[in-house]
């Protein structure tokens, strides 16, 4: 990700803004992804991350509930999702697997495992002032 070609930044202040995010992510990915499947899973992963960030964010004066940044670097698409609030577990959670007991997800808790299984890299950084930063990366398939 050293040679970043493009980036996009979106602020979210409510769940209503997710529709704008969805459209922006699809438009962004359409330029670089080679298949609809790839766009679908990037879109779903980013929306999942943004949805949870808005859901659990602390309201701060003059700050959005969540901030999304998208980057493209010739090989991959990277999304950074930031919010303020309680820390959450990322490293401790495994990727989703069909061998797991599905009943554990009956009331939620599948978000991070799902993102981990759909994307190539998921990183979490806890910053000062209660800021959470989730960094998710999808390596793009090459032209056949």
């Amino acid at each position: 990700m050293d040679d970043i070609k493009t980036k996009l930044k979106i602020s979210l202040n409510s769940f209503d803004d997710l529709e704008q995010v969805r459209k922006a992510v699809i438009n962004f990915c359409r330029h670089y992804c080679r298949s609809n499947d790839e766009i679908d899973i990037i879109e779903m992963s980013i929306l999942e991350a943004c949805h949870n960030a808005v859901q659990y964010s602390e309201k701060r004066k003059n700050k959005p509930l969540c901030e999304l940044m998208l980057f493209y670097d010739n090989q991959s698409i990277k999304a950074i999702v930031k919010n303020y609030g309680k820390p959450f577990k990322v490293v401790e959670k495994d990727s989703f697997s069909i061998d797991q007991d599905f009943l554990q997800y009956k009331n939620g808790g599948l978000g991070i495992p799902l993102i981990k299984s759909l994307m190539d890299s998921v990183e979490y950084i806890r910053k000062s002032d209660n800021m959470n930063e989730l960094i998710i990366v999808k390596k793009l398939t090459k032209n056949q």
Partner: peptide, 17 residues
């Protein structure tokens, strides 16, 4: 129209039950 992890979790839990 929209599909997320909560819906998927409920779907999979339903399958198991």
């Amino acid at each position: 129209t929209w599909f997320g992890s909560t819906g998927l979790g409920a779907l999979l839990a339903s399958y198991t039950s």
